[in-house]
């Protein structure tokens, strides 16, 4: 328990960066990262849910009976997910149309429940906030970089703007699900290379 708040925050950015290090929450990682914009949108939505659920779980951790803790966590997480869904529908409808199905699926995202169970239910408010924010931003960065690579190679655009000009032949394999697996694997491989 000697970790500082800063350490709790930064561990989510590299040491425990969700899709690569923990290899959790792969469903949205593979599903929505066809463009960078989708990746960022999904990442921010997840960050919000993570932060809010960590705050609530951590502050209620002495009240929630251990036997029904998972049920309580799911209620808390589901509530925030629907908040995100409604707000996105009201103010970012275009993004909502693209992410659609994947927003409700944040409820069953292992990262969110995992952080609630493994971290927020055992730690105080501040470390939990730092943890949620760190993991969330790490998740957003991963989704954004994965989305950027796939978008550039698969459709020849970067955040919607054309990179290679009209003569570019899109590498469509990259925007399909198998391309996501290959891309994720290669990125994990490069990360391990740096680590060692």
């Amino acid at each position: 328990m000697a970790k500082t708040i800063t350490q709790e925050f930064t561990k989510g950015l590299w040491k425990e960066i969700p899709p690569f290090r923990l290899v959790l929450g792969l469903c949205p990682v593979l599903g929505v990262t066809t463009t960078m914009e989708n990746g960022i949108g999904m990442g921010l939505a997840t960050t919000f849910v993570l932060l809010c659920s960590n705050i609530l779980v951590s502050s209620l951790r002495n009240i929630i009976p251990p036997k029904v803790r998972i049920a309580c966590f799911i209620i808390i997480i589901a509530t925030f997910v629907i908040v995100v869904e409604l707000v996105m529908q009201a103010y970012a409808y275009r993004l909502f149309l693209k992410l659609g199905l994947f927003i409700p699926l944040i409820v069953v995202n292992c990262i969110v429940l995992g952080r609630a169970e493994a971290f927020a239910s055992k730690n105080g408010l501040l470390p939990s906030m730092a943890d949620g924010l760190g993991i969330g931003i790490g998740f957003t960065l991963s989704l954004a970089s994965l989305g950027a690579i796939r978008e550039v190679l698969g459709t020849g655009t970067f955040y919607g703007a054309s990179v290679f000009g009209p003569s570019f032949q899109p590498f469509t394999f990259m925007i399909q699900a198998p391309g996501a697996f290959v891309c994720l694997g290669l990125m994990l491989c490069i990360m391990n290379l740096f680590e060692n």
Partner: peptide, 12 residues
């Protein structure tokens, strides 16, 4: 258990 779950669900 019942009270906590009920309150939580109602609040949500």
């Amino acid at each position: 258990m019942v009270v906590v779950l009920t309150v939580l669900a109602a609040f949500s």
